[in-house]
Design a protein around this nucleic acid. Structure first.
Lengths: 336, 336
DNA sequence: GTGAAAGCGCTAACAA
DNA sequence: TTGTTAGCGCTTTCAC
């Protein structure tokens, strides 16, 4: 089955390729193409099952109608959620998504950026990884629009749509305090990602603003590559000796890991311990009670990211930073 | 910052674009380009930060080094896992992935296929959805290579890499029988997807082969859109009256839903009831005991799919169907 | 060893 | 109202 091109349609109908191009791109009116001819062209395109070659189109117009997306790891719930939202919104705007997963490696991240640039994407939506500052910086020097999501680098001014991690953690901690908790522990990864550090800052600030002295032993960090091991130790520590009465987990993955240990130790939630998570997980469905958590607006974030990027594509210029709020989902895992 | 093209490098070095093209595509030897010149060209490309325009390249060579991937819903664990595997393998083979999520809609599926074709992908990896037969059939008539994964249509001969769902369910059921269970229930979605039906067939066959009369009331179907509601009813039914002593869930999502209800009803696993799942979920981490399950080889499936597709791209012809086996992960959720 | 030039499929300025 | 044609950035044949 031979590939049908504009020329084939043109000769089939007996007109020039220009007319065919006009008609099939919806410029029939504008270019004042004869009604009958326009109809014939449309029909021929249908009959011959014409498929426009997007590459040729893009090469000519210098616009690929394609956006590149790099997530940190598509297996994260955050990633798949945001990917779904972005793909849907892009499709709605007539854009196609070229996809890559950096798996938290800055080398892979760099490579992916290059591949996407070579594919002439009109813009990039990126979840940057640790040590990808250089890559982002060189993007800034190019004129390819990009927006960071979820994570950013505090010392760089870039377009981004982020969570207000500070506020989310602040509000969540305040929620625990309002429930009557004073001994509130916080467990986070020990990495340098700004968004995670912001959660710590929010936690501390909330305590201080409510006249609670932050207890160093209650602010724990686990290693990313040994978090399960470290978590066991952490939970053990927090539930024996100078017990805390609530634990706030900085991510869903940490919450699962922590809850697992809590189940093992047969600690009753919320009777003996309150529990709060950043983000939710389907795993919570199997916990003994619904888990209170701060919920990220993935749909919204994806939609905003796409629209911000497309705005940038069409009229570059201003830098835009949007901070979204989490929704506090109060459930039974926090004793009143 | 002006976009650098082959021509810019050529004039910068003082040679023709042909030489530049040869050198930058690693054909310097083959085309016997002068060593010095080759070196100069490479250097200039580096200096000027040359980025090849993949679109122009593809247009000319009629090869985009791009594969299209359509999953049923990127939020499924299966989807994100397989996407990760496919993207990684494609990257290894120097291919880029263009991505779409059909969200189980055949309309969206169709659209996506067209978009990907327009983008001149070299091939497609597809998880077909219900009612996408027509779309697949018309792909067959084109000469664009594609391979189906996870799901197929029994009355169509297509390249595919699938699970041997029959065998997986057969073996899983046999496992339960060997553990001493006779009253084994099976809960599945009531949809028409062949791979899910095969699981039913395997379940029934295993029972019969071991001299157990399949009990109609123990083979239950829940509606896809009301599975939680139906699941509650199902679990209730199976644990009161003529009780079964083991439940085999046809998917991880069903298992989570079922286990949730089992927890609610305070039924002890495995003491009062054994439980087996098809596929695993991080949710199982929070269940009272590790859940036995049949594990899908996602990495392998993704890798094979990519390689099968690329073989097809390079030398079309034979139809290839590969069936993979699950790995049976026996855990505590099945009483011996 | 190297260069000139055609042409991939399309758009859009210009001519008619 | 329609047709002609240059050219997007690259590869590759053919000539030198």
């Amino acid at each position: 089955m031979k590939k049908i091109g504009l020329k084939d349609i043109a000769s089939h109908v007996g007109v020039s390729t220009a007319l065919v191009s006009y008609v099939l791109n919806g410029q029939a009116e504008e270019k004042q193409v004869g009604k009958e001819i326009a109809e014939k062209i449309k029909q021929a395109a249908e009959e011959l099952n014409y498929r426009p070659n997007q590459l040729a189109k893009s090469l000519k117009t210098r616009k690929s109608n394609t956006i590149g997306l790099i997530v940190a790891d598509i297996n994260y719930r955050f990633s798949s959620g945001i990917t779904r939202a972005i793909e849907a919104e892009a499709k709605r705007k007539n854009y196609t998504v070229i996809f890559g997963s950096s798996n938290e490696s800055s080398d892979k991240f760099n490579e992916l950026v290059n591949v996407l640039i070579n594919h002439q994407v009109d813009g990039l939506i990126l979840v940057p990884v640790e040590h990808s500052e250089a890559s982002i910086a060189s993007l800034q020097k190019s004129d390819l629009p990009f927006v960071l999501i979820d994570r950013n680098f505090p010392n760089m001014i870039t377009n981004c749509v982020l969570l207000d991690n500070y506020k989310a953690a602040y509000d969540s901690t305040t929620h625990l305090i309002n429930q009557g908790h004073k001994k509130i522990a916080f467990i986070n990864y020990n990495n340098r990602l700004f968004n995670l550090q912001e959660r710590n800052r929010g936690y501390i600030a909330a305590l201080e603003d409510h006249g609670i002295e932050p207890h160093p032993a209650w602010s724990l960090f686990v290693r990313q590559n040994h978090y399960e091991q470290d978590m066991r130790k952490a939970i053990h520590q927090l539930t024996s000796g100078s017990k805390c009465d609530a634990i706030f987990f900085a991510t869903d993955r940490l919450a699962i890991s922590g809850l697992k240990e809590i189940v093992n130790l047969k600690i009753k939630v919320p009777e003996e311990l309150s529990v709060f998570s950043f983000d939710e997980s389907e795993a919570f469905e199997l916990f003994s009670c619904p888990v209170s958590h701060a919920r990220q607006p993935l749909e919204k974030m994806g939609k905003i990211a796409v629209n911000m990027l497309l705005d940038l594509v069409n009229k570059p210029g201003v830098v835009n930073q949007i901070y979204l709020e989490t929704e506090l989902v109060a459930a039974k895992s926090c004793r009143e």
